[in-house]
């Protein structure tokens, strides 16, 4: 059942690339709203500023997940696409 990778594309697994997990760790830490002063409720466009920051980190995480899936996940089963 095992399939050969297409061409000579290198096999890549996200878990084997350390710097990726460094970035994930930083994003995960930023995903928790611990770094805002207590009770801060400054509004920007009717939404608290801290919520905008968390949303921006969420978006960064989604984009980075997209990038890692697209570039760092090649274990070789591409033959029927």
């Amino acid at each position: 059942m095992s399939r050969k990778p297409v061409g000579n594309a290198p096999r890549r697994e996200p878990i084997r690339t350390r710097w990726i997990w460094g970035v994930f760790a930083v994003l995960f830490v930023l995903l928790n709203p611990w770094y805002f002063p207590a009770g801060s409720s400054r509004l920007v466009g009717g939404v608290p500023l801290w919520a905008w920051v968390i949303l921006a980190v969420c978006l960064a995480l989604s984009v980075f997940l997209h990038f890692v899936c697209a570039v760092y996940w090649q274990t070789g089963d591409e033959s029927d696409e």
Binding site: M1, S2, E13, P14, F28, L31, I54, C58, L61, C69
Partner: peptide, 24 residues
């Protein structure tokens, strides 16, 4: 919102290898 995104992050830890082994 972020807890649904972290599900995909958790998948990245194991899904690539599990998929390959699932086939094999």
């Amino acid at each position: 919102i972020p807890f649904f995104i972290t599900i995909i992050l958790a998948y990245l830890v194991f899904a690539p290898r599990l998929y390959t082994l699932g086939r094999r």
